[in-house]
Amino acid sequence: MTAVLTITGLTMDFGGLRAVDNVNLDVRQGEIVALIGPNGAGKTTLFNCITGIYKPTAGDIVATPPGGPAKTIHGLKPNQVTEIGLARTFQNIRLFSNMTVLENVMIGRHCRTTSKILGAVLRDGHTRREEAEIVAFSYQLLERVRLERHVNDFARNLPYGAQRRLEIARALATEPFLLLLDEPAAGMNPHETKELDELISRIRAEMDISILLIEHDMKLVMNISDRIFVMEYGKEIAVGTPLEIRGNPKVIEAYLGEEAHA
C-alpha cells in the first residue's frame, strides 16, 4: 500500500520550547490512523504543521494524492495544502456560525470552483452551471452526514453533535484524499460517539478517503484505527496496531496507565 502522507524528522520549535521533536509518521491509502498522547504532547501542533498553519522548524512533509505525484507540502499556505487534498477539522468547533449550514459546506467548494467576480456580475452560463453544481454537491454531502433537514438553519443554532458533523461535511466538500480530524468525539455523548464512529468508517469505505485523527476516546480509537501513533512530550513513543499499543508498556506508563489507576 502506498503512503498518502509521509512525515520525516518533523521538528517544531516555539522559541526555546520543542513542541514536536523529530517525529516520523505515515498514513497509507485507505487507512484510519489515530494519533494519541497526553494533553500537550504536540498532536495538534503536528496537525498545524501539516495543514500549513505553522511552518515547521525542520523535517519533511510529503503528500501523495492517489495516482498523482508526491508533493512536498511543508511551508505551503493553508489554502494551498487544502487544494492539494488535505482537509481538517478542529478541536474546538470553528464553523462559520453566521452562515447557514448549506453555505458552510458550499464555502468548502471554493478551491474546486473557478467563478470570478466578473462572472458573478454577468451571470454567464458557466457561473450558473457551476453554482448549481455546488448546491447539488453540498446537498449530497449533507445527506451523507444526515444534516439535510437543517440546510437553511444557521450553523450556530445546530446541536453540538450536528455541528461536529457539519465540520466534517465542510472538510469533505474540499474533496480531500486525506482527512485530519482533531478530537472529533470531544464533548460527545456515547450515542453521538457511536454515530461518529460509523460516519468515519463510512467516509473511508464510500469516499475512498484516508483518515488521520487525534482522539482521547480510547474506545473509539481502538475500534476504528488500523494503526496508532503515540506521542509524549513532542516525541513519538510507539507505533502499532490497536492490539500492540494496548500491550505496549511504554504507552501504558505514559498514557493509558493514568487511566488504569483512575
Partner: peptide, 14 residues
C-alpha cells in the same frame, strides 16, 4: 468566511 475566521477560511481552501 474570511471576515469571520481567516485561518479557517484558508483551511477550507479560500
Amino acid at each position: 468566511a474570511t471576515a469571520q475566521d481567516r485561518t479557517m477560511a484558508m483551511l477550507v481552501g479560500v
